[in-house]
């Protein structure tokens, strides 16, 4: 039972890490907690569902949905966030409230467009449940592991092996110095949004496949749980975010399995967050230690 619960927790953690990665990439550059990332998560899931229903190809659905949602992200950054952030003496709460607005707007927009019902994602995977003795591994979990691995390697490659990635890291370190060194900040911001919203979209789709269902309010929990993971991961640190996702996924699972439902599962994430921040106020991996 313990091993099975660890596997359960690991899977939940992977999903959390992916969901929060988008927000982390955006915080890393713009220093805004972008709740609207949860909107990208919902939009991505719906786009993926529509594309999968028309093409019947899951890979195409993933790729197109990520690209389209990333493009929407760039538009939002260009026409909503940049004008707001460029206003003189802007207080940090303004972009936060803006992102909450975008999130609520998106949820209701999708509800009016598609309806409030749960839609069946309807993916049939080419592999079935794997049983190793008493241990059960769901086919969707295998998909999630493969996708997580692909996406994280892609992220690692872009950030560490490309010029744009170098610019991203430089900007995340100190945007003013990076700018004086000739880094095109606008381009870096656009990269953040493409990757950030693309990741959120992939996470939304994966949740859609995992639970075989999508609905307009599916972003509600990620919208705030994402914050716990971003903060726990050291605010804007991609590796910290993966660690934090796994820590929260595992602790939620183990606590709800062995302690019972005294505390709701969602509250556990914040309990873990507070406990760890009391001991280590910079989060699991602080920004200084690079990415």
């Amino acid at each position: 039972m313990l091993l099975q619960q660890i596997i359960n927790g690991f899977m939940i953690g992977c999903v959390y890490a992916l969901t929060a990665m988008g927000g982390t990439l955006i915080y890393g550059i713009l220093r805004i907690l972008d709740i609207a990332n949860a909107a990208a998560y919902v939009v991505g899931a719906y786009l993926g569902w529509v594309i999968y229903a028309t093409t019947g190809n899951l890979a195409v659905a993933f790729f197109l949905s990520m690209a389209l949602t990333g493009a929407i992200g760039v538009l939002i950054q260009k026409f909503i966030y940049t004008p707001i952030l460029n206003k003189p003496n802007i207080i940090p709460i303004v972009p936060l409230i803006t992102s909450v607005g975008i999130f609520i707007f998106t949820g209701d927009f999708i509800r009016l467009l598609v309806g409030p019902e749960i839609k069946d994602f309807g993916v049939i995977l080419p592999f079935s449940v794997i049983k190793l003795g008493r241990i059960v591994i769901n086919p969707e979990w295998i998909l999630i592991i493969i996708m997580t691995a692909i996406l994280l390697s892609l992220l690692w490659f872009v950030l560490n092996k490309t010029k744009l990635g170098l610019a991203w890291r430089a900007t995340a370190g100190d945007s003013e110095i990076a700018e004086t060194m000739g880094v095109n900040i606008q381009k870096v911001m656009a990269l953040s949004y493409i990757m950030g919203y693309g990741f959120a979209s992939a996470a939304g789709m994966m949740i859609g496949v995992l639970y075989s269902s999508i609905y307009p309010t599916m972003g509600d929990i990620p919208s705030y749980k994402m914050l716990a993971i971003i903060v726990l991961g050291g605010l804007g640190n991609p590796i910290g975010t993966i660690a934090a996702g796994l820590v929260i996924g595992l602790s939620e699972t183990l606590i709800s399995a062995y302690v019972g439902s005294v505390i709701p599962r969602d509250a556990i994430a914040f309990l873990v967050l507070i406990t760890i921040l009391l001991v280590k106020p910079t989060g699991l991996i602080s920004r200084k230690n690079s990415i």
């Binding site: 039972m1 099975q4 619960q5 359960n8 927790g9 899977m11 939940i12 949740i207 639970y211 269902s213 309010t217 509600d220 929990i221 939620e252 699972t253 183990l254 709800s256 399995a257 439902s261 709701p264 599962r265 969602d266």
Partner: peptide, 15 residues
């Protein structure tokens, strides 16, 4: 018991 937005039941179902 679980909260209204819950969708992940594998921990409790495993138990």
């Amino acid at each position: 018991t679980f909260g209204m937005p819950e969708t992940e039941f594998s921990p409790v179902l495993t138990k």
